[in-house]
C-alpha cells in the first residue's frame, strides 16, 4: 500500500463478494489500517501486562508458602505426575505454534490453512482440558486432595499439604480459566474467518490479539509446569 487512501473509513467501495478482510476499513480516527493495528495491539499488550501481574500474585503466593513450608510443597509436588504436566506443556506449545501459523496464513492470505490451524488450536485447547480433568483434577479431588478446608486426604505426610493444594488449584484454575477464555476468543475468530473470511493480509487485528492472548496462556504454563511438577 504505497498511496494512502484517506477518508474512506467506514465506506465500502468493494462489492459484497469481496472477502471481509479486503472490505474492512479502519475507524475514522485512524490514518491507516496499520496505525489501527498498532494501536489495537499495543492496547492489548497493556492488557497482557495486567494479566502478567495477576499471575504475579499467584507466583508470589507460591514463593511465600514454598519458603515457609518447603516439606509440604515437596510432598505436594510428588503427588503430581510430570508426564501429564509435560503432555499438557506439549499440547500448549503445539497450539501456540498453530496460532502463530494461523497468523502467518492470514498474512499470506491462505484462508484454508488459516482455518485448519485455528481448528487444531481449538482441539489442543480441548485436549488440555481433557488431560487436566481426567488425569488430574477429578482423581485428585476424589482422593480428597482438595484445597484448604475441603481437604480430606487421610495419608498426608505434612500438616501443611492443604495449603499446597490451595495454591495448586488456584494457580492451575486461574490458568485454566484463561485457556477457556482464549479458546472462546479463538473460536469466535474461527467463526468470523469461516463465515466472512474476516482475516487477511491487510486486516487481522482480532486474530493477532486473540493469538497474543493464547501465547500468554502458553507463557504462564511454561512457568507453572516446572514450579508445580518438577521442582521437589
Amino acid at each position: 500500500m504505497t498511496a494512502i487512501d484517506p477518508g474512506t473509513a467506514g465506506e465500502n467501495k468493494l462489492s459484497s463478494n469481496a472477502p471481509g478482510w479486503e472490505r474492512y476499513k479502519q475507524a475514522e480516527h485512524f490514518r491507516t489500517q496499520e496505525d489501527e493495528f498498532d494501536a489495537c495491539t499495543q492496547g492489548f499488550w497493556l492488557f497482557l501486562a495486567t494479566e502478567v501481574l495477576l499471575f504475579a500474585g499467584l507466583f508470589c503466593f507460591y514463593a511465600i508458602y514454598r519458603l515457609k513450608y518447603p516439606e509440604a510443597f515437596a510432598n505436594g509436588s510428588h503427588y503430581l505426575d510430570p508426564f501429564y504436566g509435560g503432555l499438557n506443556t506439549v499440547v500448549l506449545l503445539v497450539s501456540s505454534f498453530t496460532v502463530a501459523m494461523a497468523i502467518r496464513c492470514a498474512q499470506i492470505n491462505n484462508q484454508r490453512w488459516l482455518n485448519i490451524n485455528l481448528v487444531i488450536t481449538l482441539i489442543c485447547a480441548f485436549l488440555f482440558f481433557f488431560i487436566k480433568l481426567t488425569f488430574e483434577y477429578i482423581p485428585k479431588l476424589s482422593q480428597g486432595k482438595a484445597p484448604g478446608a475441603f481437604f480430606s486426604y487421610p495419608y498426608a505426610h505434612d500438616p501443611h499439604e492443604p495449603l499446597w493444594w490451595s495454591m495448586y488449584y488456584m494457580a492451575t484454575g486461574v490458568h485454566a480459566l484463561h485457556v477457556l477464555i482464549g479458546a472462546s476468543l479463538l473460536g469466535f475468530v474461527l467463526f468470523r474467518s469461516v463465515t466472512k473470511q474476516a482475516y487477511g493480509p491487510k486486516h487481522f487485528t482480532l486474530l493477532e490479539n486473540a493469538g497474543l492472548y493464547w501465547h500468554l496462556v502458553d507463557l504462564i504454563w511454561i512457568f507453572l509446569f516446572p514450579l508445580l511438577y518438577l521442582i521437589h
Binding site: 499488550w45 497482557l48 501486562a49 502478567v52 501481574l53 504475579a56 500474585g57 507466583f59 508470589c60 514463593a63
Partner: peptide, 13 residues
C-alpha cells in the same frame, strides 16, 4: 511494555 511488567514483577517478588 512487557519489560516494564517484568520489572514490576521483579519488584513484587
Amino acid at each position: 511494555i512487557f519489560l516494564f511488567t517484568l520489572f514490576a514483577f521483579a519488584m513484587f517478588l
